[in-house]
């Protein structure tokens, strides 16, 4: 029998965490980009492809990542698989973005 680590219906689990959390900007951005890539003009990634991404990137990763982070990582995996960009190109873009994010090194006084 094949059973994915995401296939948890009926498993024992603790109390439902009845909390309301804000929907953060980066999380909206993840959903927006996924929708755009899957829209009628681009047809680059279906929801089922995205699901395959997070259902196959490993159980430890799945359990450790938040809902939107899973989707973001899976989206990147699928785009790399489709050769839209390489992992190295993404790393370079991340480094560039990070440089903009982190405060510049303190000036010598």
């Amino acid at each position: 029998m094949t059973r994915g680590y995401h296939d948890i219906g009926g498993d024992p689990a603790g109390a439902v965490p009845i909390v309301e959390l804000p929907w953060l900007h980066w999380e909206k951005q993840v959903e927006a980009i996924r929708n755009l890539l899957g829209d009628g003009t681009r047809r680059m990634m279906s929801l089922d492809e995205l699901r395959r991404g997070f259902e196959s990137f490993g159980e430890d990763k799945y359990k450790a990542l938040s809902f939107y982070r899973r989707r973001l990582e899976a989206m990147i995996d699928i785009l790399v698989e489709k050769e839209v960009f390489t992992r190295e190109e993404l790393e370079a873009a991340v480094a560039e973005t990070r440089a903009r994010w982190e405060p510049p090194a303190a000036c010598p006084t």
Partner: peptide, 13 residues
Amino acid sequence: EGQILVDALQSLL
């Protein structure tokens, strides 16, 4: 990290 990663993805796209 999530924000940086999604910004990087968006800029690539």
